[in-house]
Write a protein that binds this DNA or RNA. Structure first.
Lengths: 118, 118
DNA sequence: TGCATACCTGCGTAGCTGTGCAGCTATGCA
DNA sequence: TGCATAGCTGCACAGCTACGCAGGTATGCA
């Protein structure tokens, strides 16, 4: 197989066939980018703490998240806005209280993977 | 249970007991930070492509990684230096060729989780 | 109707990070 | 011994991002 794009077909390789395997392993660039974006959302300790709390405790209000994490309200709100724009969490309004929960299955899987390390 | 630290015990809460659950769910701050750091390593598309190639293809040389990902050699080298400093990958020298592989089990699990989405 | 609460938004700043360029070290071969 | 290759490092710049502050909107209660 010749999976190497034409613009870099002339570059030296150590193991040519393994390069093709590697290209196949990487797969579609858009998919890689999508996963990198998801990982970026989990890369901040504050956001990760929020997501862990939501994932394991269930729907929580903004104020409670702020108390649980030690953040101030605007910081929590801004983090949730980012996560909501990415489709990771969703908020449900009950009166003047908004309770958020994790709605992205892939992110939930990652959170489970990271909460089960002992 | 009163898991709320004293410095924020006076703040208003919506569901006090759920706050305690959330604090328990978040767990140790150091562990959260460690996971956030790991996620940060996977948050860059270039690094993620390198790790996917290493994870699914096995040991690969720097030059081959550069050809497979379209990066130039110094960029690959610097990315691998970061990953090596974090203990995620390790290189084995064979003559003038260095072949890298993934050595962190947790990161390998995440890579498998992200390579199996279809 | 007035007020406190719950949440959101915009702005400015400090800090981190990815990227490219230039140059260096080390290994293998003739 | 001379040369090409494989890989590594330092530096400077652009871009992004988390964070805090101030203020705004909406809901519920007296």
């Amino acid at each position: 197989m010749h999976l190497v794009p034409a613009d870099r077909a002339d570059r030296r390789t150590i193991d040519g066939h393994r390069v093709c395997d590697a290209i196949a392993a990487i797969g579609d660039a858009g998919r890689v980018r999508a996963w990198a974006d998801r990982f970026a959302l989990l890369a901040d300790p504050k956001r990760l703490a929020l997501l862990l709390a939501l994932h394991r405790t269930g729907p929580l209000a903004v104020s409670d998240l702020a108390v649980a994490t030690g953040m101030n309200d605007p910081a929590v709100s801004q983090a949730l806005r980012l996560l909501r724009a990415a489709g990771v969490v969703a908020g449900e309004k009950e009166g003047r209280v908004v309770r958020y929960r994790v709605v992205d299955a892939d992110v939930a899987g990652l959170l489970g993977h990271c909460a089960a390390d002992g």
